[in-house]
Amino acid sequence: MHDVYDDFLDILIDAVYEYATNNNISEADLDYCSKLVIGAHQETNSFQSLNDSEQNEYSTIAVNEQQGNSNSNGNNCH
């Protein structure tokens, strides 16, 4: 099922980037949003094709945003 996500990652990236833009999250540029979305979908081919360093970077971005810690660019939703 996760392979299906690969077909929609660009749409998800665009939606996250639009959200960041509309909410004045200036640190969340298109590259950052791409890393966030791909890092949050680790079972996809897009994530699996990254090297170890990239997987770590993308995963860290996703965890930071999910937890809303000091390294996140968005606001904590909890």
Rank of each mutant, 00 (worst) to 15 (best):
D10F: 02
I11M: 04
Q48T: 12
V63P: 07
C77P: 05
H78I: 02
D14G: 03
N76L: 08
S26E: 10
Q66V: 05
Q42C: 07
E65M: 07
C77E: 08
D52V: 12
H78A: 01
L12H: 01
N24D: 13
N69G: 07
D3C: 02
H78W: 03
E27S: 13
N64D: 15
E65A: 05
H41W: 05
G68D: 11
A20I: 01
D52G: 10
L50T: 05
L30F: 11
D52E: 15
Y17N: 04
Y58G: 00
E54A: 10
Y58Q: 00
F8V: 05
A62K: 13
E57D: 15
N71W: 02
Q66M: 12
Y32R: 02
E65G: 01
Q55A: 14
C33T: 09
Y58F: 13
S59W: 00
K35S: 12
I61E: 03
I25N: 04
T21C: 06
A62W: 11
D14S: 10
L30N: 08
N64C: 10
T21N: 08
E57N: 13
L50V: 09
D6N: 09
S46Y: 08
N22A: 10
N71Q: 07
H78D: 03
T44A: 15
N22C: 07
Q67L: 09
S53F: 15
E18C: 06
M1S: 05
D29A: 06
S49Q: 15
A40F: 04
A28E: 05
N69K: 11
G39Y: 05
D7Q: 08
E43C: 13
N56W: 14
E57S: 13
N56Q: 13
I13E: 00
E65R: 00
S49V: 01
N51I: 09
D14N: 11
I25C: 07
Q66H: 04
I61W: 03
S34P: 02
E18W: 06
A20H: 03
N45W: 00
T60D: 10
D29W: 11
E18Q: 14
Y58R: 00
N45Y: 13
H41Q: 05
A15W: 11
E65L: 03
T60L: 07
Y19T: 05
S26C: 07
D52L: 14
L30E: 08
N75S: 10
D6T: 10
Y19F: 12
E54D: 14
D52W: 09
Y58H: 01
D31Q: 04
L9H: 01
S59A: 03
V63Q: 14
G39P: 04
S26N: 09
D29C: 14
Y58I: 00
S70Q: 15
Y58S: 00
H78K: 01
